[in-house]
């Protein structure tokens, strides 16, 4: 039983984490990002689009298109994030509003295009793109370690990709010059400007990166939850990622912990319902566990939370 909790928990926590990291990049640079939901959806749509059009050109059991679809999802997410960045940075819109608009538009466009493409190219009235099943593997020796061995047992290979991305994004944010500029833009953009660095450019890059990371998370959710792309991807995981990053105090590692709590509370709840042999309607009750847990934890821990100081402010050169 604990095995399923760990395997399912990780399969949920890691995509959530990569989306939350996307959010951290954007918010640490000073751009409030409520658009994660739309970005992950658009990314998943782009990846799925690639699969339905070009997946057939690869040999039957090849996993290459599946991995390529992750790259396409990142590109699609980044492209769509450019629109968000333009709104927030070039057109100086209210960032909260721009985020919500981006979400609404993303859901509208992808739903419409999925239907229209299915109608025009495949002549079927469907709002889904079938994208297949993501490969799972086990690591032979490690998986036999008691308890934590479950981490290495029967896991989606995207877990490895996300862990690798976690390492890269952590290094980029905390150890590179770009990361330092980015974090400074979120706390004291005037100082960054005085140092001769273009604040708007840094923020633009941060937002586009957050789109790419959200796109990866989105396509992973699409694979792990349903093996297809449909408007059901807009389940609110983007908002959950925002909760995770606020809970993680805008830092990558604490956010990782927050995502793990969500993931395990979710899979643990499901297993609990199965264990107690409750009817499936009780799943609705156990599904609330991650959210109730978050609220309770926030009550205890959010006093010391500190958002980036310039978060949500449009950069104004003239301001002191």
């Amino acid at each position: 039983m604990y095995k399923t909790i760990i395997i399912d928990g990780l399969a949920f926590a890691l995509p959530l984490l990569i989306i939350a990291i996307g959010g951290i990049y954007s918010e640490r640079s000073g751009v409030t990002n409520l658009a994660l939901e739309g970005l992950l959806g658009f990314g998943a749509f782009s990846g799925a689009l690639f699969i339905v059009f070009l997946g057939g050109h690869f040999s039957q059991n090849s996993n290459i298109p599946i991995y390529l679809s992750i790259i396409m999802a990142a590109l699609g997410g980044a492209l769509y994030a450019t629109l968000f960045a333009l709104l927030c940075i070039k057109f100086k819109s209210n960032q909260v509003i721009a985020g919500v608009v981006i979400n609404i538009l993303s859901q509208a466009i992808t739903t419409f295009l999925t239907r229209q493409i299915n109608q025009n190219f495949f002549e079927q009235p469907s709002d889904k793109f079938q994208i297949g099943v993501f490969p799972r593997i086990s690591i032979p020796v490690l998986k036999d370690i008691p308890i934590i061995g479950a981490v290495f047992d029967n896991f989606y290979t995207f877990n490895i990709i996300i862990i690798a991305l976690l390492a890269v994004t952590w290094y980029l944010l905390y150890k590179s010059a770009f990361g330092m500029h980015l974090r400074a833009c979120g706390d004291n953009p005037q100082a960054v400007d005085a140092a001769g660095i273009d604040v708007e450019k840094v923020r633009f890059k941060a937002v586009v990166l957050s789109g790419a990371l959200s796109g990866v998370g989105g396509i992973c959710f699409a694979y792990s939850i349903s093996a297809n792309f449909s408007p059901a991807i807009y389940m609110g995981y983007g908002y959950l990622a925002i909760a995770a990053l606020i809970f993680g105090n805008w830092k990558i590692m604490p956010t990782f912990v927050a995502c793990l709590i969500f993931g395990f509370a979710r899979s643990g709840g499901n297993e609990l319902a199965k264990f107690l042999q409750l009817s499936s309607s009780y799943l609705d009750l156990t599904m609330t566990l991650p959210y109730i847990l978050t609220l309770l934890l926030l009550i205890f821990f959010s006093k010391r939370n500190r958002a980036p100081r310039a978060l949500g402010e449009i950069y104004d050169k003239g301001k002191r």
């Binding site: 409520l34 609110g236 908002y239 959950l240 925002i242 909760a243 606020i246 809970f247 599904m287 609330t288 959210y291 109730i292 978050t294 609220l295 926030l298 009550i299 959010s302």
Partner: peptide
């Protein structure tokens, strides 16, 4: 607690 987060959590609950 940010009103955005708490209201999203309450929505789900």
């Amino acid at each position: 607690i940010s009103e955005v987060v708490s209201s999203i959590m309450l929505n789900y609950i």
